[in-house]
Simulated scan of single mutants.
Amino acid sequence: MNQEISEPPRRLTGLIRNFGLQLSPTPRGARLARLLATEQLRLWGLPTHPAELIVGELATNAVTHGRVSGRDFRLLMYVIGDTLRIEVTDTRGDLLPYPQQAAADAESGRGLLLVEALADRWGVVPGPPPRKTVWAELSTGPAGQWPVLPPQ
């Protein structure tokens, strides 16, 4: 079945855009978070890079280090003014993330260093127990002048 996909609006002013969903704390859930976030950014007319990498790292951390069996993690993205905020909430508030150098031969352990390098700001908010939210913010440019990706 062919579907026509309309082009995202070229200019959106004065809007607060948000997107949120709960996902299973599995590698598949983390992968789905990145894919759905990328599609939502495209629909908003915003560049996907580096936001897709940040979502991928935060979601992967949630399912790797913040996983509690039977409890989902939550992805929330919203744009206010010229700032995109990405939030990933998991149910392991007792384990707070911090960037650290991984061993040179390690296959993982560099995710928060990547988030720190790509995001304008990032942090952790404890909250209500047993949760925590790891967030990152990116500047999207002046409000009302959203970059638009060329048609693919």
Rank of each mutant, 00 (worst) to 15 (best):
N2C: 09
N2I: 14
S6N: 13
P9A: 13
R10M: 12
G14I: 13
G14F: 09
L15K: 08
L15S: 07
I16V: 13
F19M: 10
F19S: 05
G20R: 15
G29K: 02
R31N: 11
R31K: 14
R34N: 06
L36D: 10
L36W: 14
E39G: 08
Q40H: 09
L41F: 06
R42E: 09
G45N: 01
G45E: 02
T48L: 07
H49V: 12
H49D: 10
V55E: 00
G56K: 07
N61S: 08
V68F: 05
R71S: 10
F73P: 00
L75F: 03
Y78R: 04
I80K: 03
I80W: 01
G81P: 04
D82Q: 13
D82N: 13
T83S: 01
L84T: 02
I86P: 04
E87K: 00
E87Q: 01
V88H: 01
D90V: 00
G93K: 04
L95P: 05
P97F: 08
Y98M: 11
A102N: 06
A102L: 06
D105P: 06
D105C: 09
L112P: 05
D120R: 04
W122Y: 11
P126F: 03
G127H: 10
P128D: 01
R131T: 14
R131D: 04
K132C: 03
V134S: 00
S139I: 05
P142R: 08
A143E: 11
G144K: 03
Q145N: 09
V148Q: 11
L149E: 09
P150K: 08
P151R: 05
Q152M: 05
Q152A: 10
